Simulated assay, not measured.
Amino acid sequence: MTRIPDAVAVASLDTHRLIVAVPNEGPAEVSCNLPRPVAASVLRQLADGLDSPAGRCETALATGRPCPVHDAPTSPSRALLDAGAEAAPGAARGMAKAQRPASLDALLSYVAATMTHEQQATEEPPALTVDDVRDALAFNAGDRDQVLATLRDVLLDTTATRTPEQALAAARILLEAHARQIAALVEAHHRATRSRWGLTRSTRGLLTGYEGARKIVTAYAAGLADEQALAEGAANEQVEP
């Protein structure tokens, strides 16, 4: 028959700064609203206290009894403040002198690994992807200069990390769009000139030059698009098993 506890304590981060729950089965659960170095120091001080109630100062080690100065009872909130002020030295002294129980070391190792993993997951910024650049282009489609507005947004987005390959991909996409903008401007000027002056001996060379410039710029844009397609294809092949 399952034992029914005499009392159940309910704790939350509204009333507590650090909560560690160790069930009979399964991993420990950690909730914390302290800075991580402070929380780690609190756990280490708890481990030191469980390992040796007599304390770690010279007086306690010499007499074998709790030191009236260093081992005097303190309030939990005061202990947390002291832990924040003496996190590094206290941890170093405790780890150098203490031989903790193996089960306690396992718990502390698990808590430290969990907090480190959560911190890395929280702090790791997202990478700049080609989809981000293309989405920004689509978002700025109604802007007076779509590519210029998108370049501004990409340069201002300092939260996203970018490797040289990702930066090169963003440059290809933006330059391709810019080249197609220029080609469209040349084509519009070609049509306007022909509509206004017609195809005559004096305008034939000018119109031919416009058409040649449009083809050159369009070919440049197509080349950038082909290079980017090849780069994305190679990247996808490396990801696939």
Score class of each variant (00 low, 15 high):
100 R>K: 10
103 S>I: 09
104 L>Y: 01
106 A>R: 15
106 A>E: 14
107 L>N: 06
107 L>K: 03
108 L>P: 03
108 L>M: 08
109 S>R: 15
109 S>P: 08
111 V>N: 03
111 V>R: 04
112 A>L: 10
113 A>K: 10
114 T>Q: 07
115 M>W: 09
117 H>L: 09
117 H>S: 09
117 H>R: 14
120 Q>W: 06
121 A>K: 12
121 A>P: 04
121 A>L: 11
121 A>N: 07
123 E>D: 15
123 E>P: 04
124 E>D: 11
125 P>Q: 08
125 P>S: 04
125 P>G: 02
126 P>N: 02
127 A>K: 05
128 L>F: 01
129 T>Q: 00
129 T>R: 02
130 V>M: 04
133 V>F: 01
134 R>Y: 00
137 L>Q: 00
138 A>W: 06
139 F>K: 10
140 N>L: 03
142 G>T: 04
143 D>S: 12
143 D>N: 08
144 R>Q: 14
146 Q>H: 14
148 L>W: 10
148 L>Y: 07
149 A>I: 04
149 A>H: 03
149 A>Y: 03
150 T>P: 01
151 L>C: 09
152 R>L: 13
153 D>P: 01
155 L>H: 13
156 L>S: 12
156 L>H: 14
156 L>E: 11
157 D>K: 05
158 T>Q: 14
158 T>F: 07
160 A>Q: 14
161 T>P: 02
161 T>K: 07
161 T>D: 03
162 R>I: 03
162 R>H: 11
163 T>C: 00
164 P>V: 01
164 P>K: 00
165 E>A: 14
165 E>D: 13
166 Q>C: 02
166 Q>I: 04
167 A>V: 03
167 A>M: 08
168 L>W: 12
170 A>P: 01
170 A>M: 04
171 A>K: 03
171 A>E: 04
172 R>I: 00
172 R>N: 06
174 L>I: 00
174 L>N: 00
175 L>T: 08
175 L>M: 13
176 E>G: 09
177 A>Y: 02
179 A>Y: 05
180 R>L: 15
181 Q>I: 10
181 Q>H: 10
182 I>N: 01
183 A>T: 01
183 A>C: 07
184 A>E: 13
184 A>L: 07
186 V>C: 06
186 V>M: 09
187 E>Y: 06
189 H>N: 14
189 H>L: 15
189 H>W: 07
189 H>M: 14
191 R>K: 13
192 A>S: 11
192 A>L: 13
192 A>Q: 09
193 T>E: 10
193 T>G: 04
193 T>D: 08
194 R>T: 14
